[in-house]
């Protein structure tokens, strides 16, 4: 990794405050964080530790009260609503705990959605969506609606949706929180594969099992980063990676 390369995430003195006076809550209370390109970071913490607020800020879904946030070199705080929407579309891929697929809409159309908002032509959109679904092992279920898919399959569709636009950052919020152990393994294998390809992942979780897959583990408590443990170098493969396992 060269020193000139822009980090995917560069956060300085980040603060998020809710309420005022006696009832004021510092959800995030002065966080400095740099995530290099190609890293696989798990942010851990109990509920109330500020990790969800971090996720919202890192995902440009919420604007911090104070501090600087450079996403891939762009200062996010100064952006308009429209520009923030564009940044989310181009630079971030979201994976949610409850999948959040559009109901009654085929897997293919769900995966095409970010490309549609990016203005990608239909034929290319379709090709890339099929590629992404093939990558997550759902090539045979393009026309299934979310209701026709299992939880694990739905989460794989949402991962396909997150990576189809080739974002610089993959942001996952409790991605295995609603899954059984087998589906959890599938999803974590997928993440390992994506990290091994050199993609940047940030996973918010409270499960140690999930954190074990990351190259770097951050622990949050009371809005601050309490511990920062590196388990594998940025440019190495993730510690639990089993080559070929994600295609199962």
């Amino acid at each position: 990794m060269s020193a000139t390369e822009t980090p995917v995430i560069a956060v300085e003195g980040l603060r998020q405050t809710y309420g005022s006076g006696e009832t004021q809550v510092h959800a995030v209370d002065g966080v400095d964080l740099v995530v290099e390109r190609g890293d696989y970071v798990a942010i851990m913490g109990a509920s109330g530790s500020g990790k969800s607020t971090m996720m919202n800020i890192l995902g440009c879904l919420d604007t911090p009260t104070a501090g600087r946030y450079l996403l891939d070199g762009t200062d996010v705080r100064t952006l308009s609503d429209r520009e923030q929407a564009r940044i989310r579309n181009r630079k971030i891929g979201f994976v949610f705990q409850h999948f959040n697929l559009i109901a009654r809409t085929s897997a293919l159309a769900n995966v095409e959605l970010p490309l549609a908002y990016a203005g990608v032509p239909r034929s290319e959109r379709r090709r890339r969506a099929v590629d992404a679904l093939t990558l997550v092992g759902l090539a045979g279920r393009l026309d299934h609606t979310p209701a026709q898919l299992s939880g694990g399959q739905q989460q794989r569709v949402s991962i396909a949706r997150a990576i189809v636009g080739e974002p610089v950052l993959l942001l996952a919020d409790e991605p295995t929180g609603a899954l059984d152990s087998r589906s959890t393994d599938e999803v974590l294998d997928l993440f390992d594969g994506l990290a091994a390809e050199g993609r940047t992942l940030v996973v918010i979780t409270h499960e140690d099992e999930v954190a074990e897959h990351a190259k770097r583990v951050l622990r949050m408590r009371d809005g601050r980063i309490e511990a920062d443990v590196r388990r594998a170098p940025v440019d190495a493969a993730p510690p639990r990676w089993r080559p070929g396992a994600e295609a199962s």
Partner: peptide, 9 residues
Amino acid sequence: VRKAIGADR
């Protein structure tokens, strides 16, 4: 969801 994945107002 649509807003998160890039739809604007």
